[in-house]
Amino acid sequence: MDFRLRTMKPQDSQLLHTFLEHSISFPEDQEWTEETKKEAIDRYLNNWGQMGDIGFIIELKASKEPIGAAWFREFSSNSPGLAYVDEKTPEVSIMVLPEYRGAGLSYDLLRKLIDQASMEGYPALSLNVNKQDPELELYQKLDFEMVRETSNTQVLKRAL
């Protein structure tokens, strides 16, 4: 199967919303209602395409069907994301459809984001991951290190 990587566009926000709903890990040590979960998800995607929003979508080459995405966004201390570290460190979101996992696509997406963030002059990237997620091993191999944890999640940071 052949894949292609493309840059995200503002019109991709609904697709990203669907991907994020299936991949986000909420810390269990906080109470989450459907409304607070929606607010948290929306924070990652509202007005996608603003300054500092960067991401990539991986598609099947023949059909152009999106099968994964990775992106980052900067947050402020007034409205932090789940992996907030500081205002200079964007947070990464990443998801590959289950039937395409194990083919190295997460690695390709994350490597592209790391390279792009470095070229843009960011000092680091952060992400939030469930402790049981098999991708945790990938993040560690790519030099992400834990900065804090909850009962079920870890916030990881990678210096660039």
Rank of each mutant, 00 (worst) to 15 (best):
W71I: 07
F26L: 15
D115M: 04
F56Q: 06
S76P: 05
E137T: 14
Q50T: 13
H22S: 13
I54F: 04
P90V: 09
P90D: 13
D29T: 05
D53R: 07
G104Y: 05
D29S: 01
L5K: 03
T7Y: 03
R6W: 07
A70I: 10
L109N: 01
D133R: 00
E39I: 13
Q116Y: 01
G121K: 03
R73N: 10
R4T: 13
D115Y: 04
S106T: 09
A40R: 07
N47D: 12
K112N: 10
E35L: 07
K131E: 14
K141R: 15
N128R: 03
R158C: 14
L82C: 06
R43M: 13
R158E: 12
S76M: 12
K61N: 14
L109A: 04
E149P: 00
A70D: 12
R148G: 02
T36R: 09
R101L: 05
D29A: 07
K37D: 02
E137M: 09
E149V: 01
A117P: 01
M146E: 15
R4Q: 14
L15D: 06
A70Q: 06
M146W: 02
P98F: 09
N128A: 05
E65C: 04
N78M: 06
T7W: 06
E39C: 01
A62N: 12
Q140P: 03
L15R: 05
F72Q: 02
V155W: 01
H22M: 10
E35T: 13
R6D: 09
L125A: 05
K141Q: 14
L110A: 05
Y100P: 03
V155F: 03
I114N: 00
P27S: 09
K9Y: 09
Q50Y: 04
I24M: 10
I67Y: 02
Y139M: 07
M95C: 15
L142H: 10
P123R: 02
T7N: 07
A83S: 14
R158S: 11
S76Q: 11
G52Q: 06
T7E: 15
N128V: 03
K131A: 11
E21Q: 15
Y107V: 00
E99N: 13
R111N: 11
L142S: 05
E87S: 12
F26W: 02
K88G: 08
T153Y: 01
L109K: 01
K131N: 09
Q50M: 12
L110D: 01
I94V: 13
R4P: 00
L136F: 11
R148C: 06
F72C: 14
M51V: 12
I114R: 00
S126P: 06
F19C: 12
A83N: 08
A159T: 14
E120D: 10
R6I: 14
E59F: 03
Q116G: 02
L45S: 08
T18W: 05
M51S: 09
Q116A: 12
D2S: 04
S118Q: 11
L5A: 04
K157T: 12
E135V: 06
I94G: 01
P98D: 15
S118N: 11
L113A: 11
N130R: 06
V85H: 05
W71Q: 02
T150D: 04
P80H: 05
D115K: 06
E135T: 07
K38G: 08
A124V: 11
R158G: 10
G121H: 08
G68I: 03
L16M: 14
S23V: 10
E145D: 10
T89A: 02
L20S: 13
N78P: 00
